[in-house]
Structures are given as C-alpha cells and as structure tokens.
Write a protein that binds this DNA or RNA. Structure first.
Lengths: 345, 345
DNA sequence: CGCATGAATGTGACCGGTCACACAAGGCGC
DNA sequence: GCGCCTTGTGTGACCGGTCACATTCATGCG
C-alpha cells in the first residue's frame, strides 16, 4: 500500500506497468480479467497495483469505452415516502452492481425546465430512470431522446404493454380495487375518493381501480376530490367531505393525504371509524402508529426500484436476461381506521 | 438543430470546427467564452454548434481538465425526513450551480463497508458531502482520504470549530434546549428524553441541550431512553415510560419517535396533553396533522443542505468566498401535544 | 522440417476535451 | 523602417483508459 503522506496524483496503468516491468496493455488485461496473461505476470502486476494503490479511473474508462456504469434518476420529489423508497431500491440494486447513482429533481413541470433536466441527465452518460407518477415525470419520460437507455417507473398502464417495454410499475390499480372492495364489504353504500394529482391522463390507475370496484358492486360513483400530495391537501379535502353526512367511507390516494383527512374529520367532530372509515395507500412507516392506526394498501416501492434498475441494467449490458419485471401483489393492511358504517346509515 | 432521426454519435468540437471552418481550439475558446475570438468567427462557430446540436461532453471535460462539477452525497439514509430534506437542499443548490449530484448510501456502519462506499464516492471525482448524524456517517467522514474536497453535515459541535472547517450544522443543541425549557415552563417537574442513536460521542448535541436546560432549572435529570430512528423505536420507549406515573413530559429526538411515543401513551390509556406532554424534533410535514398535533422544534434542513453545497462549492472553485455558513435559528412550534402537567402532579 | 496456429505481450491510435506554446497579422512607439 | 506587444488562430501533446493490430515465441501436424 502507498503509505507516503503526499497527495500525489493517483497511479495510472502506465505507472503500474513501469513498476511491474510490463506494458500498460498487459496491466489493462489483468484488471479486466483477460485470460491470456501468464500467471507469473499477472502476479507481478497485481503486486504492483497493490503497492501503488492503483484504482481504475472511472472517468477515463467512461470516455474510452463509452460505458459508464451510472444511472441518473429523474424525479419530481425526493422526500415523499413512495418516491424516496423507489430511489432507495434503485440505489440498493445499483450499489450491488457497482453502478453510480445520480439524481435530478424536476422542480417544475414546465416543458423547458423538464427538457433542461433531461439534457443534464443525458450529459451524465449512463442510463436514466424516470419516476413518472406525475406530470413532470411523464413529460420527462417523453422528452428523453430516442436511443438513450431509459426505464420509466409508471402507474399501472391501462393495457399491459408488449412485455418488452422498458417500464416497471406496481399494481396500484389492483391496490385501489382491493381497498375499495374492503370498504364496501364492511357495508358502506359507497366509497369516496381523494385523489393525488394524476400523472396526466384523465383517469389515473388508482382512480380506475376504485371506479371498477364501485361499478362491480353497483355502488354509486361520487366525484373524486382532486387534491395534492401532502397532508395539507388531504386536510382541505377532508373538511369538505366531513360536511356531507352521507359520506361514510373515504379512500385516499396516499397515506399523507389520509393523515390530513383523519385530522379534518377529527376537527369536524366525526369519529373514525365509528362514523367514517378511512383507508390510505402505500403503507408509509408512520401509518401503523397513527391514532386510529390507518388501514392502507402496502406497495413494494423498494422492490419496484430494484426492478427498475435490473431492467435498465439489462438494457445496458447484454448479460442479465431482461426478465419482465415481477409485478408484486399489493397487500391490504387492515387497521383501526376502517369499520362498518354507523347503524343508521 | 439536428433533425435527422439517426442516433448518430453526438458532435464533437472537431465536427463543429470542420463545419465552421476553424480549428478545434477556436471552438474550445468559443464555448469557454475566451475573449480573443473575432466576433464574426464566434458567430460562425455558434451557428455550427446550433446546427449540429453540439453539447460539451462532460466526461471528456472531467478527464482533460480534472474538474468535474459533481458532488456525491454519502448518507446512511434517504427516506427519513431530516436526511431527505438535507439531500433536497443540496440538490437544489447543486442544480443551480450546474453540478451533478450523486448519492451513496451507507447501509452498514461496519468499517470495511463504509470504506468501500467512500472509495466509490472518491472514484466519482468531484466533491463529497457526508451526512454525519450517525455512526456510519461519522466513520465515513473520518475515512475520506486527506486532500479530497469534503464537507460534513454534523451535529452541533461541542466547541465551534475554527470557523473555516468544512462543516455545517443546524443548532440542534439550542433546539433541544428550547423545547426542554418550553416543557419546564409549563410547570413540569422534569422532562424525560427519548434519544435517537447518537453519532458516536457519548453525548449527542440534542442530549446536551436537554441536559443543560434541566440543569439550569435545577430539575432532576432522568436517564435518557436510547432508541432508534423510526416510530417503532418510539413506541417501545413510550410503553416503558408510560408505566412510570411520575412521567409527565417527554422530549423525543425526532418527530417519528414522538409519533411512536404518542401511540404508546394512547395504548396505555394516558392522555396527551392532559396527563403527559410530548414534544418532537424536526417538524416533519405530518406532525401538524397528528391528533393531538405535535409540539416540535423546526430545523431548516433544506437550508442546511444548501449551505453544505455552498461551502463545498467554495472549496472546489476559488470564486465564491467561503462565507461561514449561517446557522439558522431553530424555531419552537407549540401545538396540542404539550400543556401543563395534571393538577395532582 | 517447415509452416500454420495460438498464447503472451507490445505498439499506435483513439475517446473528446484542455493546456502550453508557436505563429501570423496589425498597431504603436521611436 | 524596425522592433515589440497584442490579438486572433492553429498545432501537438496530454488526461487515463480501451481497442485493433503487430509481433514474438512455443507448439502441433502433415
């Protein structure tokens, strides 16, 4: 090991070559595991590498070979539970594969801003993963120039794509369906829905699953309440719904929204689950500890992130066969916030 | 603009040079804003750049010049509110300065694993920001080889460092002090503390602020309850404290912990704030919407992240003067979860 | 025994930029 | 009219790897 205190320029393969008495190309062969290197030579080179503390320069590798072992994740948000968990999953998988992970935040959904951010991601080299749950993400996915390796993390598509499309998704349509059926099965006449901002299409996957469950049960379909991502949005929506005495069950587009709704119901003097049942979406870490604890549907966001990376990895390197990603089954988690409707209803 | 559909190799400065009828060096001068280029020449080059859709190759730039306009953030976690917010702040500032942001997660605090992750960050080139609120982070900060540009985001240091040290921190010591004084001022005999895992030192900054407030008030100092980061840890700690009828005020190391404590008190039949007051730390987005809403101390994590980047930016480029980062003042947010102790106590 | 074959290694060019320096043309002072 | 400085531009080497090809030497086979 290099123990000299000087912060000298790090050793290059030519330094190693000189130290080992071979050509730089032989060093290159050794670090790349090329078979036709005499064992004794390999030994000497490895010794020199160790002695000089050589590390292969990632920048030079990227420039010379074109491959860069890097992913850039484009996302509108890094703090919300779902987004953060997907990012975590990507990072895990990327680290395991020795890939570097970069992030770019889509602060605005405006076309020019999105395009600029996509450009930056493209400049970084390597692959791109776009989290396309919102308008900014959807636009970014669309703005990625053809030919670049990219994978989208999207809502459940209306019709499953050809199987080889570079997209992954959690089955949030099914999740919404399950949650709605759960509430209906408790005896509620219908279920109201507080929606997260849709990705761009008229009907988001979550809304679709909710609607389907209502339709199958012959329940009336109330207008969904459009909201934002955070608890404040849920709070506002909750205050509105609380005024309507006929509302006995509310499904929320995510757990943060549900939190706001719970608070609004509390402030309006309506008890949960006595008078109104509430269900969330995502099973965020805090949901089990709320009072009342929140009935919700768990989605495996971390696994989704891992799948996204695996798919991209397959696109970037021929090796790993691009198995169509396993859509994990959402899991209904029944807690205190849902129960039968009040007797009078 | 290049409108041909072919995914051809992107244009290099030599392509632009040929198109504009100049040498590649002149193109280099134009894209770097070098003054001595005849306006008419500059014009022609810019036209060629536009026509070919030329973008400067970041990898080649990094290799040739040594500067890489990139930051890698090393952190033990990306999903907890504080960490995620710091990351968000860093990203914002980095984006504004046209820097790429990479992340590396310290999954284990084990020395070898930490060292490997630090190596990866170093390999990426550019600067490093280490979030050192926990043992893994602290070790990573220590493992960064001398000579590399690095900034640490740390707990309030016991004695403010020389002013030019590449560290930033929020005043969490003061924040804990304020929260504790608030609870004492309501009439509580003392305040119990549920601690997040300390960074490594015996006494964390938060613990120190709490202790100081107790000491100044002449209040007895109960043993802090060591816990984890998430609500589950707070729940366990809360169940223990709930059994002790003398406990009337609890300060928690963060809002997630406080959430778990609230739940534990609820399950134990102890009312908040009637019998027990609870205060959190960080003012996470959901804290205002809990029932009861959570008294907490707000820390500007996003601003902290921005400061960290600004400091690193100053280290990497001589330009921006390295103003010592402004330690923002924590803000006590009094909500429903704190009140006077029960009459009998 | 001569030659094709393959293993082990070396040489030069290249990736796309930057840097140091050379060089031509024009303006100015003397 | 000469030298000198400044402005504008071009040439070659270099950053640290990879790639394509050349070279050397030992081996197998007709």
């Amino acid at each position: 090991m290099n123990v000299t205190g000087h912060t000298r320029r790090p050793a290059s393969i030519r330094d190693v070559a000189t130290a080992a008495g071979v050509s730089y190309q032989t060093v290159s062969r050794v670090i790349n595991g090329h078979p036709s290197v005499r064992p004794s030579t390999r030994e000497r080179v490895l010794a020199a590498i160790d002695e000089l503390g050589f590390r292969r320069n990632a920048t030079a590798l990227a420039l010379a070979s074109g491959r860069s072992r890097a992913v850039t994740v484009l996302t509108a948000n890094t703090t919300h539970y779902g987004y953060a968990s997907i990012l975590q999953g990507i990072e895990e998988a990327a680290r395991a594969a020795s890939y570097a992970v970069g992030i770019g935040v889509l602060e605005s959904a405006e076309d020019a801003a999105v395009a600029a951010e996509v450009q930056r991601a493209a400049d970084a080299g390597g692959g791109i993963i776009v989290i396309a749950y919102d308008p900014a993400g959807v636009r970014a996915l669309g703005a990625v120039p053809a030919g670049l390796p990219v994978v989208g993390v999207v809502e459940t598509p209306a019709t499953p794509p050809g199987g080889d499309r570079p997209w992954v998704w959690a089955d949030d349509r099914e999740a919404a369906y399950q949650a709605t059926r759960h509430l209906l099965s408790l005896g509620h006449a219908t279920v109201h829905y507080v929606a997260i901002p849709s990705s761009t299409r008229r009907t988001s996957a979550r809304t679709g699953g909710w609607r389907q469950a209502l339709k199958e049960a012959g329940a009336p379909e109330p207008r969904p309440v459009q909201s934002s991502w955070g608890p404040a949005g849920g709070h506002a929506a909750g205050l509105k719904l609380a005024k309507d005495q006929s509302v006995t069950a509310i499904l929320c587009g995510n757990d943060d929204l549900a939190l706001g709704v719970l608070r609004a119901l509390h402030e309006s003097g309506r008890s949960v689950p006595g008078e109104v049942s509430v269900a969330g979406f995502d099973d965020a870490p805090h949901s089990a500890f709320l009072t009342p604890s929140l009935t919700t549907v768990r989605l495996d966001f971390t696994g989704l992130g891992r799948s996204a990376f695996a798919l991209l990895h397959g696109v970037l390197e021929e090796s790993a066969p691009v198995a169509p990603h396993p859509v994990s089954v959402p899991e209904l988690v029944v807690r205190e916030s849902s129960g039968p409707p009040p007797a009078g209803a």
